[in-house]
Design a binder for these strands. Structure first.
Lengths: 349, 349
DNA sequence: CTGAAAGCGCTAACAG
DNA sequence: CTGTTAGCGCTTTCAG
């Protein structure tokens, strides 16, 4: 009856029989062809091809103890920097014959834990992950306890191998840039810091640099999520006596949302207020106004993280690597002088 | 010496010994706990927990013939619609206890073939994929020949199970909308059609509707890639005697690039020329001008494709499912009357 | 260069 | 409800 589905699952043993060699030889033919006599190799391969045979990786993984598969755990792919990160990591993995199992966590530590457990169950050779906060991450403990190899991507840490930009320095650079444009009252806007150590590091870098340059202390304003702007909060920020003249947002998606909300409130960017982001997502350049931001190449972070992980798998010593960042001067942050004296506080739309 | 790495790989057998039961019982405890006496179950689980034991999926997969893992093959995650597609598919997969192995092909049939082969080697339970063109796709033949379950995402086909929007109808809708705005000369812009049957279907829908409405025939102009605009081509298109008043681009990324290029050439969108896209990527709403486009929800396509695949895996009959599309009226396409009479052909920048 | 044998960790039959 | 048995498909010693 059911003779259509799952036709002829040929196994290595059958190839061996047909080729009149032992299974071991067929295995060698595929894994270390140099060890097999040319004529034998040819015969085996011909038969294999005829049957469309390819070694079943489950068998080989079980026996050899390696799945040649890596796990990738990221907050979300909606943020294009993480999509880039995947592409960088997968490209690097493929170059070494590895496949990638991927999952997203939506910045939720509980989902991080589930994800990592799932990947461990699959016996992956290693895991690349971005966690909410490496300091107090139970997953990292699990990983260590189980002796699973891993590398953090985006998170900075000196307790764990990682691939990231120097968020502190990058945020400093941005504050420097805004200061150079004449801004002295800068606010920092982000989602819940507990969900992103990156945002926290950026805030700290911003504050530090503001202090160094003698600017007003950087106020921190919280948005409900890392990618959504709360209009009420913005209204409140700008309704104060001496409102900030520039808003530094913890990521580009948030900066984008903030710009849209400001527009709805009747503020022009950068005419009434400057806005800067962080990440350097591709669309930033296309937006209007084009986004002033820090480019932290996701592709590089992913590629590097994967490279570090593969090093570990090859038993090279653990190490971390910083990925360089670049300030991108867009039109969303303008010199203070060209801005209006009195920001309009009433709606204009 | 090397006593630090890979500490104590506990196996089901060891748990069985310690719990004084047979391996089968431990297996049942994890897979069908209802079949095990409560007290036994408890004892087993306690011991397992103490050792941090979890069943090794390689063993179980090899024996049971199912990896509970699906493959996802997409052109690229740089296009946010595909990133959404991943999220939709992975969410659906996870809901049924499946993991996802993912890879990108950059619209290259050769990479599609490699990817599928790699996934087949991993013995995945099924594959969701977007191919350049299902009509002449060797991968689909391979998949069929090997009796691997699969569902197409984005590609429309009546020879293969698939989840997609009705590209033809959607393109018709867009032409209808542009016609309603007063446009009668509309050009269609895309990358190489051989790399995307979606673009081809959209072109055909556009042409058909233009004919129906008695508009000028839709001219098709080719860009070097699906996401990059060639300024020279645009210049040539607009340099003709009776240039099109609206450009319908085969996807949003391309539309975005076209708008940027037009701006560089000194054309204002939509003042001088209207531009429409296709896909409904999130950033379209944030752009300026906001993008007129067709929303084809990637998340839904991915989720649906995964759902169809899981149905297949549960031996339900093959089927396809169309995902609805929506016209999004943005500001990048404006009524003809408000446009200038004579499009400027000299640079203004 | 090749073969024989053992077994990776688990589950599916079949008994009881 | 539980145990026994027999592998799933492959690789890896260890011998030749």
């Amino acid at each position: 009856m059911d003779n259509k589905r799952r036709s002829a699952p040929v196994s290595l043993i059958q190839i061996a029989q047909e080729a009149q060699v032992s299974p071991a030889t067929v295995s060698r033919a595929f894994n270390r062809p140099a060890l097999v006599q040319a004529s034998t190799l040819e015969r085996i391969m011909a038969i294999a091809e005829r049957h469309g045979f390819r070694p079943n990786r489950l068998g080989s993984s079980l026996r050899s103890g390696s799945t040649r598969t890596l796990g990738l755990v990221l907050p979300t792919l909606s943020n294009p920097v993480f999509a880039d990160c995947f592409e960088g990591a997968e490209m690097r993995a493929r170059a070494s014959g590895y496949s990638v199992m991927m999952t997203v966590t939506h910045y939720d530590p509980e989902q991080e834990a589930d994800a990592v457990q799932r990947l461990i169950d699959h016996q992956l050779d290693g895991i690349i992950l971005t966690v909410a906060n490496p300091q107090q991450s139970t997953v990292l403990k699990t990983l260590k306890a189980r002796d699973v190899r891993y590398v953090l991507a985006y998170n900075e840490s000196n307790a764990h191998p990682c691939s990231a930009v120097d968020n502190h320095a990058a945020a400093s650079d941005m504050i420097g840039h805004l200061a150079q444009l004449g801004h002295r009252r800068i606010a920092f806007i982000s989602g819940p810091l507990s969900m992103s150590d990156r945002a926290a590091a950026r805030l700290s870098g911003a504050r530090n640099q503001a202090r160094t340059l003698g600017l007003s202390p950087v106020r921190h304003h919280l948005m409900p999520s890392h990618t959504q702007a709360d209009t009420a909060v913005l209204q409140q920020i700008l309704g104060t006596k001496r409102p900030p003249t520039a808003l530094f947002c913890s990521n580009d998606l948030l900066a984008t949302a903030v710009i849209v909300s400001l527009r709805e409130l009747g503020y022009d960017v950068p005419q009434d207020i400057s806005v800067a982001g962080f990440d350097g997502m591709r669309y930033g350049a296309v937006m209007s106004p084009s986004l002033t931001t820090i480019e932290a190449a996701g592709y590089e972070i992913g590629k590097t993280a994967c490279h570090l992980l593969l090093e570990q798998i090859e038993h090279q010593p653990l190490r971390s690597q910083q990925v360089p960042h670049t300030l991108i001067t867009g039109a969303s942050a303008a010199p203070l002088l060209t801005m209006r004296r009195q920001p309009v506080t009433s709606k204009r739309i």
